[in-house]
Amino acid sequence: MSEDFIGWLEKLKGQKAWTRARAVLRRSLAFDPGTYPPAMPFVEPWVREEGWPREAHYLVAALYALLDGAHVEGRTLARALREAREGRGSESLERRFLALLDADRDQLPHRLRQAAGLLEGGVDFAQLLRDLRSWFHPDRWVQARWAREFCGA
């Protein structure tokens, strides 16, 4: 299902409607995920569940627009942030990444937007959607995998 949603965004990116869609989805980052009505026609057809899975779809769509649809299969957000840290030699990037790993439901959209703003190039948005859908699992396995990828293990 994640691949279908991202595939649809990829198709939309190649159309004339992308300019408006991109602006609407980027603007949606200023609101709680799923609460900005102009973004709903772009996301709701792909939502199958309520609650956090729905919000995750809105977040990924907005981040996709923020990064102008730079989908790079296999490049996770953690790996992209590690590359940014290595390229800049920035300790503050590591602090931001750790804050992202510890983010709760209210903080996560803001921290993700900050992280995406630090990237050069794209990420695997289908993987990002899968990861975000499991973000609040009690075992925190997504955060553990991201930590390993960021630290270069």
Rank of each mutant, 00 (worst) to 15 (best):
M1N: 11
G7W: 13
W8K: 08
L9I: 12
E10N: 14
K11H: 14
L12H: 09
K13H: 13
K13A: 08
G14C: 06
A17M: 14
W18I: 15
A21F: 03
A21M: 06
R22A: 14
A23C: 01
A23F: 06
R26N: 14
L29D: 08
F31I: 07
D32S: 15
D32Q: 14
P33E: 08
G34P: 10
G34F: 05
G34H: 09
Y36W: 12
P38Q: 03
P38G: 02
M40D: 13
P41S: 01
F42A: 01
W46M: 12
V47Q: 06
R48V: 14
R48P: 04
E49V: 02
E49R: 15
W52Q: 02
R54Y: 01
E55Y: 00
A56S: 05
A56Y: 03
Y58R: 09
L59T: 10
V60Y: 03
A61H: 02
A62R: 00
L63A: 10
L67Y: 06
H71V: 03
V72G: 00
V72T: 13
G74K: 03
A78K: 03
A78P: 11
A78W: 03
R79I: 12
R79P: 02
R79L: 15
A80E: 09
L81Y: 05
R82M: 07
E83N: 05
A84M: 02
A84Y: 00
E86H: 05
E86Y: 07
R88N: 08
G89N: 07
E91S: 12
S92Y: 09
L93E: 02
L93P: 00
L93T: 03
R96V: 07
F97L: 06
F97G: 00
L98C: 01
A99V: 11
L101M: 07
L101A: 04
D104Y: 04
D104P: 01
Q107K: 11
P109T: 05
L112D: 07
Q114I: 14
G117P: 08
G122Q: 11
G122E: 12
D124Y: 05
D124A: 00
A126R: 08
Q127C: 05
Q127W: 13
L128R: 04
L128S: 07
D131K: 02
W135R: 06
W135H: 05
F136M: 04
F136I: 04
H137R: 14
H137I: 04
D139H: 05
V142A: 03
V142K: 02
Q143L: 08
Q143W: 13
A144V: 12
R145H: 08
A147N: 11
R148Q: 14
R148G: 05
E149I: 02
G152K: 07
A153N: 12
